[in-house]
């Protein structure tokens, strides 16, 4: 009962403010008066995001400074693009960039399709009990902490681990694979498949279950074989999900699973294992070269942003799906 007159007052208020020209602000003010509590409920998260997400973005200014912790961002000397020049001309640029890209491309080629294949395989299983068990079991590696997973990977690939035992049994000489640079990428990628295949298949399984069964019936009546059904019904049915996941994945190309690299690498494998983000960690947090490491990190973030925007645009141009 009380609300009606208040609304009318609002309309009047709006009319006069249009005349004054401050339309947007007064509409906002009016909206605030009517939904005070909503605005207050939002406040904590907005403050949080401002401090912990946007303040660091402002801190990116350090990338253009010879930053000193004691003098702070306002007292430190501005050096223009010196930090970037140092990075691009130094020996670490090519090494960390190529390591990042290679690990990412391996991930894109092997770890990305693996859960799709698993979902398709599970989709064919007719014994529902069996399907359920395999699904449940396949999630386990996702829930094991990175520290434990890395510990297991180290144990299995050292000179007395499972892999070494297998090699011995086949007549080879066992080595400590995890400490040799030529094996790092394979170990990283294979273990990544193990960690992600089950959990990442959930979304594709859900998409598969959303395909209209009548499409299969129609295809069968038209004489389509099983592989033809897969190609013409199943894959188009989950294509939009695949594309969205692919866009997300492309945006993360510069963000190799850096916590895992950090746990698995050692100076002896830096040659193939050191990626941009681990390099940023070493020089920034360990060696405290703040300005320089911020510049390297900024380079990484900008390339990431460009990649995700490009992937999204491409997808919007060539298909119907896009993220935003």
């Amino acid at each position: 009962m009380e609300r009606m007159p208040r609304r009318n007052r609002g309309a009047e208020f709006r009319m006069t403010s249009i005349a004054k020209g401050g339309r947007r602000r007064s509409r906002l003010l009016l909206n605030y008066r009517q939904n005070r509590l909503l605005y207050w409920m939002l406040l904590p998260s907005v403050i949080y995001v401002l401090i912990f997400n946007y303040l660091p973005m402002a801190g990116l200014a350090m990338a253009f400074q010879d930053y000193s912790l004691t003098r702070g961002i306002f007292g430190s000397k501005w050096v223009g693009l010196k930090n970037f020049r140092d990075f691009f001309t130094g020996i670490y640029f090519t090494r960390t960039l190529s390591n990042t890209l290679i690990l990412s491309l391996l991930d894109l080629l092997i770890c990305f399709p693996a859960p799709i294949v698993l979902a398709l395989m599970l989709n064919e299983v007719q014994a529902l009990r069996y399907k359920k068990v395999i699904q449940t079991v396949s999630y386990i590696p996702h829930f094991i902490s990175m520290v434990v997973a890395a510990g297991l990977i180290k144990e299995f690939t050292n000179s007395t681990g499972v892999i070494a035992n297998l090699v011995t049994a086949l007549g080879g000489t066992p080595k400590s694979y995890i400490s040799l640079p030529q094996y790092f990428r394979s170990i990283f990628t294979v273990s990544q498949v193990w960690q992600t295949i089950g959990f990442n298949s959930i979304i594709f399984l859900a998409a598969l279950s959303g395909i209209d069964q009548e499409l299969y019936d129609a295809a069968r009546i038209d004489g389509a074989s099983r592989p033809q059904q897969l190609w013409h019904v199943t894959l188009p049915g989950i294509a939009s999900t695949i594309i969205i996941m692919l866009i997300l994945r492309c945006g993360a190309i510069m963000n190799v699973n850096f916590e895992k690299v950090l746990l698995l690498y050692s100076p002896s494998t830096y040659e193939t294992a050191d990626v941009i983000s681990t390099y940023v960690y070493r020089i920034g947090i360990v060696k405290q070269k703040i300005g320089y490491s911020t510049a390297v990190g900024l380079f990484n973030s900008v390339v990431s942003l460009a990649l995700v925007l490009t992937a999204n645009k491409l997808s919007r141009t060539y298909t119907d799906s896009s993220m935003f």
Partner: peptide
């Protein structure tokens, strides 16, 4: 979600 200050500026905050 698209862009972030990164590790070092967040650490400094």
């Amino acid at each position: 979600m698209l862009f972030s200050g990164g590790l070092i500026p967040t650490y400094l905050v």
